[in-house]
Computed example of a mutant assay.
Amino acid sequence: MNSKDEIISQWPRFGWDKELSKALGKPVKLAKDQIENLKNSREKTSIWKLVMTDGRESIPIVLKIFKKPLKDKHILEIEMYSKAFHVFNEIMPKLYWLENVNNKEIWMFTEFIQPLRGQIKLAPQHLERIIPLVAEFHAKTFEKRFQKHSHLFGSSLPHFDSDQKSKKNVELIEKTREYLDLAMKDKNLKELVKPKYRAIQKILNKGPVFFPEIFETGQCLIHGDLHVHNICIKNGCDSEDWDLRLIDWESIKYGPCWYDLVVLVELLVDFRSDWQKREEEIRNRCVQVYVQEMKKHGIIFQEEPLKLLKKAYLQRTLEKKLANHLRRSLDGQKSALLKRYLEKVVVWGKELGLL
């Protein structure tokens, strides 16, 4: 379903004005002239912003269309809204309606909440307002607490410590070796890669699990793609206390809690050159806030938290991200992170005993 006209043509057939009127608690109709495409992806999904109106008030909603056959990650997101919303309702948009359309697509209607990005100029202190929500989410399924909710997710839920994941990591590490060798022959990459080449090859020998302690000190459900594009503010950015919600649950998995902090904090610092002069201060403060919040939920880490963050960053980088960015660069695409990845793998690898 890739066009506005197709949405309009299906609308009366399935009676969605009626169904959404029930969900919204008053009679509403689709504003056909206010349909906006937010995303069409190669992964066979499309996302639309629609507007329902009662003639006086306009109510924006999100329509996400999943094309069959569904990928595992699409099944996961649908399960998150349809089965697990009662557990995570304070951190998610509402689900209004779910429909199997012509046995070819799943149409999912959810609450529209304004994204954080674009509302504010993000500053490091803003992370301190986001991290408590992340800790609340993690705490609900941390270690043994997960068993209480495991029935909500089927076999499509990835587990970081599974045999399948370990096998995949071995394959990716071999790909990283291959790409490093190719980079040494590439005139555009050799100068960047050569100073780090031997050290990184030595580190790769210690995989695929470089730091078992990040698994041993605590796993839970993690969002998996916790960048600022997927964080929304329900009550407006001018509010003293942000009523935050997380969207885009396709990457949810059961894994080390610190992976979400890597994406939210560490990768943001990697992208933001203007933050890098203060990166130690930002990193330390964010870790401190996260540890304090997790402690409120009865969770205390048995290893130095800052080291756990760094180890999670290296594990994530070495198992997949370094390979992805080397491949991208070899294909002639730009990589804003490759230089940072190479530098931090070596520096933190030495600091954390991989070299």
Rank of each mutant, 00 (worst) to 15 (best):
I233K: 00
T217F: 11
I59G: 03
K202M: 14
F85A: 14
S3C: 12
I78D: 07
Y259V: 10
E216N: 00
H229V: 09
V287S: 00
L189M: 08
G207E: 15
V134F: 09
K307T: 12
P27I: 10
K148A: 10
K194I: 10
C220T: 07
R245N: 02
F210D: 14
Q114K: 14
V346F: 09
E281V: 12
K190A: 14
V345Y: 05
L261I: 08
W48F: 13
V228G: 00
V269D: 01
E281K: 15
W348F: 15
W275Y: 05
Q114D: 09
I200F: 12
Y341Q: 15
L63W: 08
K121F: 13
V134C: 02
D238V: 14
V87T: 07
F88C: 07
W16E: 05
E136F: 15
I61K: 01
K295V: 03
W275A: 12
L24R: 03
L95S: 01
K165D: 14
L264E: 01
I106F: 14
R327G: 08
V263N: 02
S82L: 06
F211I: 11
I173F: 10
K190E: 13
K148Y: 07
N230H: 12
L309M: 12
W11E: 09
S58I: 06
V87Y: 11
R316V: 14
Q201C: 01
M92D: 01
E174K: 10
K144A: 11
S150A: 13
S329E: 11
L342H: 04
K334W: 10
P124V: 12
H149I: 15
L95A: 08
L352T: 11
A183D: 02
L152I: 08
L342C: 05
E136C: 04
P132T: 02
R129W: 15
S41T: 11
F66N: 04
E266P: 05
F271K: 05
K68C: 03
I8Q: 07
L157I: 03
W242A: 06
S82K: 10
Y313H: 01
P115C: 13
K350L: 01
D248T: 14
D161Q: 04
D186E: 05
K140A: 09
L157T: 00
W48H: 04
I173N: 00
